[in-house]
């Protein structure tokens, strides 16, 4: 028996919004420690790694490890049927070929359940090596989303250049060029407005705007985003989900021919 409950559906809706543009389907691996999903997009350029800890749920029970392959488009249709303040419970029997989403209104007067067929997904799991990144940047998630959106107008690619002084995002194309420089902040009132740079070595890396923009769909989940970079290895873009876990996106850099 598997059962996981969240007291409002908003978080789950936001999580799904954050992954459904990159992935058509995914396997949710459930164990007593929580729920994990790891999947690459079709082109094998980016990877989504979602971790939801069991202690972050309002109720969590997982008697046996369970892998549930879900079509994310279908899951999105079902979650649209939930009000934001509904309690959502995900339920499945052991070895079941369906999963049930139950939504309960706050006053308990409306209870709906939606059963969805599970899929057998043949997904490759990737071993992600532990890496000491040369640069780790923490910045407001809204600011990162804004920069990715703005620069995508100028080029398919954005160059991220990180030094001790700050981080620079650049794009150039037919229209011209664009540069956005952010300096490290000191003495900001609110932690969520801070820009913090931890640098061992400066890095310059080039990434496809399209994927960065897809990652920023996670912005509603977190005030801050963390970018971890080293030369010639995939970028990690991490959004923490308060009291529940995190979503990490990995993106392969563009490389010289």
């Amino acid at each position: 028996m598997f059962e996981a409950r969240l007291n409002n559906a908003t978080t789950l809706k936001k999580i799904l919004d954050a992954i459904k543009d990159l992935l058509n389907e995914g396997t949710f691996d459930c164990s007593d420690s929580g729920i994990q999903l790891q999947a690459m997009d079709n082109s094998h350029v980016s990877l989504v790694s979602l971790t939801l800890r069991s202690d972050g749920f309002d109720k969590f029970r997982c008697d046996r490890n369970l892998s549930m392959g879900m079509n994310l488009g279908s899951m999105a249709k079902i979650l649209k049927c939930a009000n934001n303040d509904d309690t959502v419970t995900i339920k499945a029997q052991d070895n079941a070929d369906t999963v049930t989403f139950m939504f309960e209104s706050q006053n308990q007067e409306k209870v709906s359940d939606y059963e969805m067929k599970l899929m057998n997904l043949d997904q490759e799991h990737l071993g992600i090596p532990e890496t000491d990144y040369s640069c780790v940047v923490r910045m407001p998630a809204m600011e990162f989303a804004r920069i990715c959106r703005d620069l995508a107008q100028f080029s398919e690619s954005v160059v991220i250049c990180c030094t001790k002084e700050g981080v620079k995002f650049s794009a150039s194309g037919d229209v011209g060029s664009a540069n956005v420089k952010l300096a490290q902040t000191f003495n900001v009132d609110k932690e969520e407005e801070a820009i913090v740079i931890e640098m061992q070595e400066p890095v310059v890396l080039t990434f496809a705007c399209r994927y960065l923009n897809a990652f920023t769909k996670a912005t509603p989940l977190s005030n801050q985003v963390q970018l971890s970079m080293s030369a010639d290895v995939p970028l990690v873009v991490e959004y923490r989900i308060a009291e529940l876990g995190h979503i990490r996106y990995y993106l392969a850099p563009k490389i010289e021919d």
């Binding site: 980016s46 090596p129 496809a208 995939p234 490389i255």
Partner: peptide
């Protein structure tokens, strides 16, 4: 010129 890398080149399939 640059080409888009793939994650398979960086991460091992388990």
């Amino acid at each position: 010129t640059q080409t888009q890398g793939r994650l398979d080149n960086f991460f091992k399939v388990l």
